[in-house]
Write a protein that binds this DNA or RNA. Structure first.
Lengths: 178, 178
DNA sequence: TTTACTATACTATCCGGACGGTATATATTC
DNA sequence: GAATATATACCGTCCGGATAGTATAGTAAA
C-alpha cells in the first residue's frame, strides 16, 4: 500500500470541498471530482451522502483523539499534560483543525446524530483535563477559552492578530502551572 | 402596527426552520410555510434566498447588540459592565441565542461574507470589554471562555450539567471583580 | 389609483442515488 | 493449464424529485 487508501482520500477530498466551497457544495459530484474518482466509484465506497459524512466524522475524531493523546504523552510534565496538549493543538492551527471544522459543519447540516463521536471525544478530554492534578474549574475555564478561539476561527468571526493570539496562548499555558 | 412586521415574522420563521430542521431544510417553501405566507409573498419581501439570510444576520446582530448594550447600561456597577453583560446573555440561553446560532450557520453556508455584521459586533464588544477597567487579558479570557460555552451549545457537543454550567458562570463573574 | 401584499402556476437547474457495465485478480474445478 | 466462477473496485448515464426564482393575476387599504 504505497498510497493512502481510496476511502481516506475520499474523506480528505470531502473535507477540502467543505473548507473551500462551503456546505452547499458538498455534493457527490464535487467530492468525486476532488478525489479524482467517478461518482459511481465514490458511491461504491460510501453508499450514501450520509455515510460519507459519517465517515468524515469518524475519521477526524480518530485522528484528533490520537493527536491530542500523543501530544499529551510526549509531555515530560505529567501534571496538566492533557489540557496543555489541547491548548497546543487548538492554537497551532493545522490542516486537522480545518478538517475538524468541515466535519462538524457537515455533520450538523446532514444529521446532528452524526456528531456523536465528537461528543464522546469532548467528554473524554474533559475527563482527562479534570483529573490530572489541576483544579478542575480552572482547567475547565482554560479549556473553554481555547474553545472560544476555536469558535472564532470556525466562523472566521474575529480577526485576532497573531501577536495577540500568541499572548493569550502563553497566558493560558502559564495559568496551567500556577 | 399591532403585530410584528411581516418581514420580522419571516426572519423569525427562517431561524426557526434552521434550528428545528437544519440548514439543508432552509428552503423558501419551508420558510414560507413556517411564516404562514405564500412563497410569492416571501419573495416579495426578500427577493432571493441570499437576501433572506442577509436579513436574518442583520436582524439578529441588531437585536443582540441592543440586548447586550441595554444589559450593560442597566448594570449599577460601571466597571466590567460589558463583559458581565456578555457573560450573562450567553449563559442565560434564550431564544435569541438560538437565533444567533441559526443565523451564523445559515450565513456560513450561504455566503460567508454575510457574516460581516457579526464580525463588527464581535469587535465592538471586544473593544468595550478591553476598556472598562478590567485587565484586558483577563477580560479576553473570560470572554473566550464564554464563547467556549457558545460553541458547545451551537453543536450540542458537550452535555454540561446545568449545575456545573452555573458554577462556571459564577466563577467567571467572580473573576471579573477580582 | 397607488402601495403593500398574497397566491398560483410554471420553468430550469441541480442533485442523490440507482443501475448496467467493465476490468482485474484470485480461486476452483476439470 | 485451460475454463469457469466469484469478488472487488470502479465508471458514466439516467431519472425523479426538490428547489430557486419568474411571471402574473389578484386583493385590501389608504
Amino acid at each position: 500500500m504505497g498510497r493512502l487508501s481510496r476511502k481516506v482520500e475520499i474523506l480528505n477530498a470531502a473535507s477540502k470541498v467543505v473548507s473551500k466551497r462551503g456546505i452547499f457544495n458538498l455534493t457527490l459530484d464535487a467530492v468525486a471530482e476532488e478525489a479524482g474518482i467517478s461518482k459511481g466509484g465514490l458511491l461504491y465506497h460510501f453508499p450514501s451522502k450520509e455515510a460519507l459524512v459519517e465517515g468524515m466524522v469518524e475519521h477526524l475524531a480518530k485522528n484528533y483523539r490520537e493527536k491530542i493523546a500523543n501530544n499529551a504523552e510526549a509531555d515530560e510534565n505529567q501534571r496538566g499534560s492533557w489540557i496543555r496538549s489541547y491548548v497546543d493543538v487548538t492554537f497551532n492551527q493545522t490542516y486537522e483543525n480545518k478538517d475538524m471544522n468541515a466535519g462538524l459543519l457537515a455533520a450538523k447540516a446532514v444529521n446532528a446524530d452524526l456528531l456523536d463521536p465528537i461528543r464522546n471525544l469532548y467528554e473524554e478530554w474533559q475527563e482527562h483535563i479534570e483529573n490530572e492534578g489541576i483544579d478542575p474549574m480552572k482547567a475547565t475555564i482554560i479549556r473553554l477559552a481555547t474553545d472560544g478561539i476555536w469558535l472564532a476561527e470556525l466562523f472566521d468571526i474575529y480577526h485576532i492578530e497573531e501577536k495577540k493570539k500568541q499572548e493569550v496562548y502563553k497566558v493560558l499555558l502559564k495559568l496551567i502551572d500556577e
